[in-house]
Design a protein around this nucleic acid. Sequence first.
DNA 1: TCAGGAGTTGACCGAACGGTCAGATAGCGT
DNA 2: ACGCTATCTGACCGTTCGGTCAACTCCTGA
Lengths: 192, 192
Amino acid sequence: MLRIALEQFCEIGYVGTSLQNIADRAGYSKSSVLYHFASKEALLEAAIAPAVDQLDALLTHSINRISSAELREAFVEEFIDYLLEFRLQAHVIINQGQSLAGIPTIDRARQSIDRLSESFMAELPTTAQRIRLGVALAGAAYVLVAVPPMAEEVVPIQDVRAALIAVVSELVTPLSLQHTVSSTTLSSTPSL
Amino acid sequence: MLRIALEQFCEIGYVGTSLQNIADRAGYSKSSVLYHFASKEALLEAAIAPAVDQLDALLTHSINRISSAELREAFVEEFIDYLLEFRLQAHVIINQGQSLAGIPTIDRARQSIDRLSESFMAELPTTAQRIRLGVALAGAAYVLVAVPPMAEEVVPIQDVRAALIAVVSELVTPLSLQHTVSSTTLSSTPSL
DNA sequence: TCAGGAGTTGACCGAACGGTCAGATAGCGT
DNA sequence: ACGCTATCTGACCGTTCGGTCAACTCCTGA
């Protein structure tokens, strides 16, 4: 049922998905849905909470990991694997997080992302470097998030994983951390 | 008024934006909005139609342009400039296009994107190459689309433009078109 | 001066929304 | 056989949605 709700939230958006819609797809009545989950918002939170927990854990022990090239490599791999595992939840957070501000779990997710971004931005002084990292992470996230859920057979997931790790690593690895000309400071992140 | 509607559609989504909401922000009444635009859907179409027209034009004379390195370079630059000019419209199409299927102008936009993708996919046989292109284009699009509209001063747009063109070119340029091992054919694109 | 069109508005409508509630059903331990 | 609890449901409620409509206010050309 959480799975069905999550799929609907992805396909037609949280606001666009009605409880009746979810109930129909699940084979229950709207009242039954509200029996298991106190409200529509609680249903969303239950659906994405595990993904946010894991995101928080991933980012917490990944901060400052871009300082070293090897650590960066490991982080990229974990990041890609995270996206592969929580594609649907990431879809909701990335594409609808902005309009879903106010929902606690969503805010938690955005705080985690902001924390990561600030950690990165502090080490990447130039706009060019920041854009580079932004394109790498956002590109990987969006490519994975936009993949139709049924395309898993026609394109082997392992191929996609390997290709993503390769291209993101290529973008992230040569990021030098020298403190060159930094004309401005970026308060909010442009990526993810 | 179209600008206000477009901003609302971006911030809280098309379904989440009510005509009353737009009317309030514009300083008119809901009835006045519906006097100028036959329906909420017509308002959305009027807001994004110019962007879709230009997208269609851009892609039409850009197809097969990745065959040559120089043409690819020019395409990248035009693509980035297009995103810079139609950030809000691209935001709606990219983030909400899936749930807005059925609206003619949205469908037109998605058809254009599909046409471009198929053209690219036909020339890029391996998954790795396709992912590479997907990360480049989707990453650039998402970074631009997610930039807060007020950050224009703190980070000079020209810097962002130059950095984006650089990183996307770096990803797209070395794409070789040799017909190597192609185990599968991808029907739908994973990017954009 | 006045006829008429453009622009604006509040009142109103049916539909759909999220959510509540009392009751029906079924399974369980005793 | 009996209650108890968990699960499920239809009827219902208040609100908000997109959209219609008649009326009002201007402005303009004859």
